[in-house]
Computed example of a mutant assay.
Amino acid sequence: MNQHMPPEPVPFIDIGAQRRRLGKSIDEAVGRVLAHCQFVNGPEVTALEQALAQFSGARHVVSCASGTDALLMVLMAENVGRGDAVLCPSFTFCATGEAVALTGATPVFVDVDEATFNMDAASLKRGIVTARKLGLKPRAIIPVDLFGQSADHDAIAAVAEAEGLFVLDDAAQGFGASYNGRRLGTFGRATATSFFPAKPLGCYGDGGAIFTDDAALAERLRSIRVHGQGADKYDNVRLGLTGRLDTVQAAVLLEKLKIFDGEIAARNEAAERYSRGLGNVVTVPLLAAGCTSVWAQYTIRLPKGVDRDGFAAALKAKGVPTAIYYPKSMHQQTAYRDFPVAEGGLSASERLSADVISLPMHAYLDAPAQERVIAAVRSAL
């Protein structure tokens, strides 16, 4: 072998390894859909919704076309719109604030806790004050279970209750995690998740779901999912979307859900190996008391003065890919920088955007590959 050949890269997320593990089961599941030809709202969609309800503990599950649609559909079902404010963390993927802005409501960005990356209840309170000062009506809070770890749902629920707001949990990265012994999907008025292929539970395209214990809300969501239809498909009783999950994707997810618990355990083992191997050279992620994570990402913070681009390049040269979630917090992005931010600013979000970097993480990350990652990180520092 040529000694100048770069080493085979460690996969950042290894969908291929999972595909090999599932073997023929997914081919057969998709084959059943190809045989019955019910590509929209086929039997697998209902079966998946029932399986997800059982897994999460939520009474009602409404599958949909993406995690963004999941957020948007709940806001539509609750008639959130012009003049309303919805409180969102700034350090998250843009879909959280995007869904709010699409309704005509105003996202008001609040800060996060630097240790957990999740919504900071003190900044949330300041954000509600800011919204009211601007003449907006605070309606909802969208905490995010970022990188796989549950947000502090008790603290957020207490603020929501005191202020008369509803909570929509954005569990796009956290589905499968728990908070104080309860799985995500059972907090707030509703929970939204994403089945984008890179997510811990991902399909082979776009997909999402909404979890709620509110039967009337679930009924409105099912109407919104199909253009707002009423009892008759050509009598549309509200504005809606084409928000359905394809039957093929439901078939894929049913097979993946069967191995999801085992994969979560494997992700947690990988996270522990990283923490042991890197805890004394970088800031490793912290699990808050009462929280578990599905480790959608394993995100470290570099020591002060380390050049992040140079660090990433050094790892890449050793076949170790990295990613930055998120180089700009939402309030720093072109489309969102004119929306209000909580009084006192969002300094934690800004600091995180400047020094976080994510390492390879998936359920099939074996110890030898991880040792390579750990050695590369240590030598780059």
Rank of each mutant, 00 (worst) to 15 (best):
D14L: 11
A17H: 08
C37S: 14
G42T: 05
P43K: 10
A51G: 04
S56G: 01
G57D: 04
R59V: 04
V62P: 09
S63W: 11
S66T: 12
A77N: 07
N79T: 13
G83M: 07
D84K: 07
A95K: 14
V100C: 06
A101G: 06
L102V: 06
T103D: 02
E114R: 13
T116I: 06
A121M: 06
A122N: 10
R126P: 01
G127K: 04
K133A: 15
L134C: 05
Q149R: 12
V159Y: 13
D170L: 08
Q173Y: 05
Y179L: 03
S194L: 07
F211M: 06
A215W: 00
A216T: 05
A218W: 00
R222V: 00
I224M: 01
L239E: 14
A250V: 01
K256D: 04
F260G: 08
R267E: 04
E272M: 13
P285R: 01
G305D: 02
D307L: 01
G310M: 09
A314C: 08
K318P: 02
Y325N: 15
Y326C: 12
Q332K: 06
F339T: 01
P340H: 12
V341I: 14
E343P: 05
L346F: 01
R351S: 11
S353D: 11
P360S: 02
H362V: 11
Y364T: 14
D366E: 14
P368E: 13
R372V: 09
A375G: 13
V377G: 03
S379Y: 06
